[in-house]
Each structure stands twice: as structure tokens, then as C-alpha cells.
Write a protein that binds this DNA or RNA. Structure first.
Lengths: 218, 218
DNA sequence: GCAAAAGTGTTCTACCTACACCCATGC
DNA sequence: GCATGGGTGTAGGTAGAACACTTTTGC
């Protein structure tokens, strides 16, 4: 291994749905920096690439390390490598983005230096991480339109209302429930479990299970 | 700069249209390796990232270095960083893809270690470059559907017939000329120059100029 | 005239949008 | 009963696919 002009890091933008005053909102976990530069600022989970791990494994690792979570979807986003990205040495960051299920997101382990923020109200971030989050959000919105990626943000079983709420949270606008239902059913990726979710003061909605295979979400 | 577990390289998949037995075909330039490993094999143009250049500049540079060409479109493709990619040391490759205009592609400078090949008849490639070309081709096909990226493969002025040939070459199937014309015109990114291309033994087609701005092709 | 590609018109279908309306539950 | 979301039906608009047909050139 020779002396290099740049070091390699892997960071991950993690999305999860959380309740925020009665409505579902897209959130992401950030890590407070405990070292210079940008000490005390919030940053994306990440760190140097290890010699024996693939890029994807590195992303999964810093996801697990910082949040204790497992990803329902994990995919490379983009590589950021401008000459000056705010660190003293040159760093090339391969950024991944991940989706975690709400049931899982609720189990994040307690760490004062890790916190979830709504994407539309982030604190100032370290380095160029605001730009990176912007890319990730755009990608998420796009992919929502031509894949069933949204299923990865929900528990194993969910109602079409919940699925629609996820879409509304990501797109930032209300969707017609009737049309949304038809599109979802027509995708052929949902199986009704037969069960219904009781408890609410309305007609109990049917529960569905996703049959999308992760490999087909490219 | 510290000792690193991986070195950083930038490679570029360059696409151009060339005539191949009367019909337009997608071609790409390869470089014959003059060093081990994979000595003598064909490979994508690429090389180590320099400390003072951005990733994009590196891609543009190895495009110019190997072919003398200028890109009409240049965009990051993907980053390949598996632990063993066929080189003795670990290399993380940030791969770009580029489109060059046919008029420009014709001026490639003479170098016995550089040659253009049709994408559907490539020689065996070094490292994991076959997989990389596969990614690039898929991206090209996809982007054809929702952007005006194909304009970047043609000269400044072109006929709708030529544009259609480019699409047919990329998609590998014939397209209905009538429907293609309507779609192209409806895109609002073509201005007729007023001139027509004479010489063929048919009705002389109108010449168009693209008004797409490179920034909008994301 | 004939071949060949340019260019126009028409029809069919699929899908999306908007919106009216009924259904089943908790209170 | 009434409010609330679940779920169905239906009509209009738009875009693409298929294909018939006219136009303009070179030979």
C-alpha cells in the first residue's frame, strides 16, 4: 500500500418514518462529532473504509455501529470527492442510503451523540453533508415513483393507509386514497394477509404484506 | 497524508456512435494495458486520482489523455470497490460515463493502444471492466427514456432520422418513425434550423438543433 | 414511374386524475 | 345518529402504439 493523495470513507444516509405531531414524517439519524474538524456539529454516520470490507459492508457497518439498526434497503448513492470538502486532508466519500422499518427504527439504542431529526428541519451539518442529504432525498423521491421501495419503511404488515402516509411524507403532498389504492394493488407486490386492523373509530382496514424482492429495486 | 487501505482511481466509459456496416452502432474506446496485471488486455481509460483535481476533472482528463476527445455529456456512474477486483492492491474506482459527438469521435488521434469497439462485440476486458460496461449501458438505455441525452451523440445539426437511428442503436430495436417524431417534437428541445439535408434519394429531411442544457440532464 | 424515407392523420388502449358515493367501525 | 377513514365506481384527459396514407426527392 502506497502513500495516497486521498483517503476513502463511507457514509450512509439513513431514512426512517417517525411520528411528528400526529403525522408521519421522514427522519434521519445523525451523529454528533466528537473530534475536530466540526467538533460538536451533527454529521452523517460514517468512517474510513477498512481494508477487508466491501463498500456495501462498510455502509452496513456504520449503520449498525451508530444506530444498532438493520437496513431493509441499502444502496449506493453517489461519491463525493471535491478537492476541499472541509477536512484538512483530502477525503473521497462513497455515500450509501438506507431505509429502515418503523418498528426497527423505534429500537435505536440510547446514545447522547446520536439523534433522529426530521429531514425538513435538520440542524447545521458538518462538511458537505447538507448537500449529500439533498441528493439522498431527491433519489428517495424519484425511486418512490417507479419502485416499491416505500414498503421498506413499514413493518412486515401494514395497511394501505399507512403506505399512503409514507408516500405523502416523502412527497410532501396529499394523495388521493382511491387512486393510490388502485395503483398499489395493480403493482402486484402486495398480498392481503386476510387480517384487519381493528381499534380505530372507522372501518377496519385490511392488512397487507409486501412481496417485493430487494434485488428488483434497482 | 497517511498510509491508506485503498487507493483511488477514476475510470470513464465513453460512448460514441459509429457506422458499422451501414447502420449506426454504439461504440466505445478501450486502451490496451502495457503493464501487469492483465498486460495486453483491453481496459477502460482510467488512472489514479491526482491530489489537486476533482473526480469529474479526473474523468475528463483521462478521456482527453486517451482519446483526445471532449465530452458532450459527462456524469458519474458508480463506484466499484470490492475487496478483490483483480489488482494486487486494493483499488476503489469511481467510474464516470461520457458521450461524445460523432463528428468529434471521428477525430480520435492515432494510437495503436487505443481502439473503438462496438459494445455488443467487446474483446475480453481487464479487471471487472465488463461488469462496469454493463452498468454503463444499462444507465444509457434508461436515461434515453426520460432525458434528451441522445442529442449529445450527434453533431450540432441533425435530422430526426439520425436521432432515431441513435435511439435504435442504443435500444437494439426499430422504432416507429411517426411516433418517434411526435415525441421528439413534443419534448420542446429541438429547433428546426430551416435548412434541409439534400443528397439522398428521398424527400430531404429538416435539420434540427438541440436546445437542451447539459445541466438539466440529471 | 418507382423506391425510399419524410412527414401527417387516425384509432385504440392504458393509465392517471378528479370526484361522487357507499361501507363498517367507535363513540 | 355522526364522524372518520376504508373501499368501489365512473367519466375525462393524456400519452403511447399501431398503422394507413400523402409528400418529395434521386434515379
Amino acid at each position: 500500500m502506497a502513500e495516497q493523495p486521498a483517503s476513502v470513507a463511507v457514509s450512509t444516509v439513513i431514512f426512517g418514518i417517525q411520528d411528528h405531531g400526529g403525522t408521519a414524517k421522514v427522519h434521519l439519524p445523525l451523529v454528533r462529532r466528537v473530534r475536530e474538524p466540526h467538533l460538536g456539529r451533527w454529521a452523517l454516520p460514517g468512517g474510513p473504509l477498512r481494508p477487508d470490507e466491501s463498500l456495501r459492508d462498510a455502509a452496513r457497518r456504520n449503520l449498525a455501529d451508530t444506530t444498532g439498526l438493520d437496513a431493509a434497503h441499502l444502496e449506493q448513492l453517489y461519491t463525493f470527492g471535491a478537492v476541499d470538502r472541509g477536512a484538512p486532508d483530502r477525503v473521497v466519500s462513497i455515500v450509501y442510503w438506507a431505509l429502515v422499518r418503523t418498528e426497527v427504527a423505534a429500537t435505536t439504542r440510547d446514545d447522547p451523540n446520536v439523534a433522529w431529526f426530521p429531514v425538513d428541519a435538520l440542524p447545521p451539518l458538518a462538511f458537505d453533508h447538507e448537500e449529500i442529504v439533498g441528493w439522498a432525498v431527491r433519489r428517495l423521491k424519484n425511486k418512490l415513483g417507479y419502485t416499491q421501495i416505500s414498503h421498506a419503511l413499514l413493518p412486515e404488515e401494514f395497511t394501505l393507509g399507512q403506505l399512503r402516509e409514507v408516500h405523502e411524507a416523502i412527497l410532501g403532498r396529499r394523495l388521493d386514497p382511491a387512486n393510490f389504492r388502485r395503483r398499489a394493488e395493480a403493482s402486484g407486490t402486495l398480498t392481503p394477509t386476510g387480517a384487519h386492523q381493528a381499534g380505530a373509530r372507522n372501518r377496519p382496514p385490511a392488512l397487507y404484506r409486501s412481496t417485493v424482492r430487494e434485488e428488483l429495486l434497482t
